[in-house]
Write a protein that binds this DNA or RNA. Structure first.
Length: 293
DNA sequence: CAGTACGCCTGGTAGC
DNA sequence: TGCTACCAGGCGTACT
């Protein structure tokens, strides 16, 4: 499930591939996933691709933008096809990660297709159909609740120990739920919340207000560290993860999971602990009972 | 206002 | 083997 590192990986790939391209036609195959009208963006050129939390923002040169939230199983895959004969020609991608319904495009789960004027295409696939794409006027981005409800970006200056002390002191919720609350900080999801808490040696279920300032600073550093590492490895694709980058390739951070999906395995600290799996707020929670107190 | 339950979805899997 | 039941999971919404 794309979190900040996966969404950033896609952003970088998209920026490299589609900046400057003109959208010729948008095929909406599942109406509920596209909010707006194709005609609002057809004919416009891509100026830039930005990210806020888990949302990618494609800026166009006609005063509009496309907001994309991949939720659990959304994928954006770009296919260069300068010599295509028909828009429906299948593009085989030579790798083992399927696109929900096969490894050719369009796949069964392809719900939106952006056709660019040079013949290249961008496929939006989403098996569980929770994601969305919205057309939003650039001038409205500032007061769009999808964006302005979000807490600080973990890589921003304002993401300080003092800020975390402030929000933690106000709640007795398990610290893991606070990390995953997009209004408290943007972009952290289940994978990186679990791994950051292990990195900082914190029990995921401890009430946030019980953390002392030293521990909070360690947690802040751990959050930044695992997110940076996730980006460095191009996101994570393992077990349930349907993530692929814009070239259709998986990430590699799953090879470096600290605790996520490692239940039953030995703690990487070799402290004799075995990773346990529980549920917090209905979500899989992984931790080492030995070093996370 | 905060906390909780539910709904949205489908593919994979466990159980029969 | 084929069927059904259940689960994962981000996040908006309705309800307590």
């Amino acid at each position: 499930m794309p979190e900040l590192p996966e969404v950033e990986t896609i952003r970088r790939g998209l920026a490299a591939k589609i900046k400057g391209l003109k959208i010729k036609k948008v095929e909406v195959l599942l109406a509920k996933q596209f909010q707006g009208k194709p005609s609002e963006v057809e004919g416009a050129k891509v100026v830039d691709v930005r990210r806020r939390g888990k949302i990618n923002i494609i800026e166009l040169n006609n005063g509009k933008s496309l907001l994309i939230h991949l939720k659990l199983t959304g994928q954006l895959v770009f296919a260069q096809s300068s010599n295509i004969k028909a828009p429906s020609s299948k593009i085989v991608l030579g790798h083992p990660i399927p696109f929900g319904g096969g490894n050719t495009l369009p796949a069964k789960s392809t719900h939106i297709i952006f056709n660019f004027s040079d013949g290249s295409r961008l496929f939006y696939n989403d098996v569980r159909q929770f994601g969305w794409i919205k057309v939003v006027p650039l001038g409205d981005l500032g007061n769009l609740s999808d964006l302005n409800k979000l807490g600080p970006e973990p890589f921003d200056k304002e993401f300080t120990s003092e800020y975390l002390q402030k929000i933690f002191s106000k709640t007795g919720k398990p610290v893991k739920l606070v990390l995953m609350d997009q209004e408290k900080m943007a972009g952290v999801g289940n994978i990186y919340a679990n791994d950051a808490l292990w990195e900082a040696r914190i029990d995921p279920q401890i009430p946030a207000k019980q953390l002392d300032n030293l521990t909070i600073e360690q947690l802040r550093k751990a959050i930044v560290k695992v997110l940076e590492e996730g980006i460095r490895y191009g996101g994570s694709t393992g077990g349930d993860e349907a993530f692929v980058n814009v070239e259709g390739h998986p990430g590699a951070y799953q090879k470096h999971f600290r605790v996520y999906q490692r239940q039953g395995e030995k703690c990487l600290r070799n402290d004799g602990g075995v990773i346990e799996r529980t549920a917090l707020g209905g979500r899989g929670t992984f931790f080492c009972p030995k070093c996370q107190k």
